[in-house]
Amino acid sequence: MRYAQGGGLTDAGRAARERIRLQAVERFEGGEMNREIATALRVSERSVERWRRQWRERGEAGVLSKGSPGRPRLGEKQIARLERELERGPLVHGWADQRWTLARVKTLIGRLFHVSYTVEGTWRLLKRHGWSWQQPIRRAIERDDAAVELWKRDVWPRVRAPRRHATAGSSLRTKPASR
């Protein structure tokens, strides 16, 4: 069952749905037709058809819910371990530089916990636990900050084009003309 808002059934809702499936099994055993079962249980005929097929193949166990199909979740201990590993840095885990990308974190989660996340799911997981993305500042290794400051102070004012000053008839008026 899909929900437009991305939600799902609560535990109580799943239990109620499970009871409906078991009622369907009783009716299968009683020889009722799919349409009659669907009407009585207020579900679609396609659901009843699917349940009947699963019941024929695997018995009552085939009809039982397999649980939420949602993303696998890491427990609090696993999250704490993941954070410790992230703090150790990518070099420790075999990457050539010190940048954590979502793809790398996803791979790390798979290696540590044998759980598969999507890149988007990895981002949601990290965001839920207070992590944020950061763009590294890229600077040349040869950069000399003192020389840059000196250039900005001494050379830039001479190179920069002088500002135009407002003159009569120019569009650079400071006050609107009064009429």
Rank of each mutant, 00 (worst) to 15 (best):
107 T>E: 13
111 R>W: 05
53 R>D: 11
20 I>S: 12
15 A>V: 08
9 L>G: 02
122 T>W: 07
54 Q>V: 03
23 Q>G: 08
24 A>V: 06
69 P>V: 00
46 R>M: 10
172 L>Y: 11
95 W>Q: 03
66 K>A: 03
63 V>Y: 04
177 A>F: 08
73 R>G: 10
1 M>T: 09
126 L>V: 03
55 W>Q: 02
131 W>S: 12
25 V>S: 03
62 G>C: 09
103 A>N: 01
123 W>L: 14
102 L>C: 04
105 V>M: 03
161 A>H: 11
37 I>Q: 02
25 V>T: 11
3 Y>L: 02
164 R>K: 14
51 W>N: 02
30 G>Q: 14
55 W>C: 04
26 E>Y: 08
8 G>D: 01
158 R>G: 01
10 T>P: 15
3 Y>V: 01
164 R>T: 08
155 V>L: 05
24 A>E: 04
89 G>P: 00
115 V>G: 09
146 A>H: 05
31 G>R: 08
59 G>Y: 13
128 R>A: 14
121 G>L: 12
4 A>T: 09
116 S>C: 05
70 G>S: 07
58 R>Y: 11
169 G>M: 10
55 W>V: 05
48 V>S: 08
108 L>S: 05
137 I>A: 13
40 A>I: 04
72 P>Q: 08
156 W>T: 05
61 A>H: 12
159 V>K: 09
174 T>A: 15
57 E>S: 09
120 E>A: 11
179 R>A: 14
11 D>H: 12
109 I>K: 02
